[in-house]
């Protein structure tokens, strides 16, 4: 179980109605169904991932997120989530808007490009960072919209998005450093967002 998924699990209330955008093989959905009695759907476009979800008995819908969420009504889910996929969207800000329209809350996780390793890589090598976690070359990568925690929070404040909770985590255990300087030491950012004040 990825650590970011564990945190999300803690943020989801029992019997929530959830929508997981880019749900992959359904690991998170399955966990939330089994542990939290959550109900809902995963959206995915990968053929193998969809088959894997169906094998787990999950509700998975083949749908391209870049085509929007126009088929979902306003506030029709308690939580709409997207893990490690925001940076692959053509228009991340529009996807966020849609997520906050369809869900009362939303949860997003993304790789923090402000992490010291990314900064150091660019500083020393003068090249776009390529790491174990993000192994693609700049010209051939699904990750077309990287951002840092600060970038993301700027977007939120400019668009009236309220950050309810934030957790920045690190693969290696610089726990105190990550808490002190999350944008420098955290490699994965997890945000819980809403539009309306609860």
């Amino acid at each position: 179980m990825r650590f970011d998924l564990k945190i999300i699990q803690n943020w989801i209330a029992q019997h929530s109605r959830i929508l997981d955008l880019g749900c992959g093989d359904g690991t998170l959905l399955e966990r939330l169904r089994d542990e939290k009695g959550a109900q809902g759907y995963g959206l995915e476009i990968g053929a193998d991932e969809i088959s894997a979800c169906i094998a787990k008995g999950l509700n998975v819908i083949e749908q391209d997120l870049d085509r929007g969420l126009g088929n979902f009504a306003d506030n029709s889910f308690d939580t709409v989530m997207m893990t490690q996929a925001l940076q692959t969207m053509t228009y991340p800000h529009k996807v966020l808007d849609e997520m906050l329209r369809v869900g009362k809350e939303c949860i997003v996780t993304f790789p923090n490009f402000g992490h010291w390793k990314a900064r150091l890589h660019l500083l020393i090598h003068g090249r776009m960072p390529v790491s174990d976690l993000l192994p693609w070359e700049w010209y051939d990568t699904p990750n077309i919209h990287f951002c840092t925690c600060k970038d993301f929070e700027d977007l939120c404040s400019e668009n009236g998005i309220i950050i309810l909770q934030r957790q920045v985590i690190s693969e290696r255990s610089f726990k105190i450093l990550t808490q002190l300087l999350p944008n420098l030491f955290g490699d994965t950012a997890i945000y819980r967002l809403t539009r309306s004040i609860l």
Binding site: A47, I50, C53, I61, N71, A73
Partner: peptide, 17 residues
């Protein structure tokens, strides 16, 4: 997709490929 959307609107268990 119209079938699937209606089913999701009715909160029914559905998968679509």
């Amino acid at each position: 997709r119209e079938i699937v959307d209606a089913l999701m609107g009715a909160n029914k268990a559905v998968s679509y490929a």
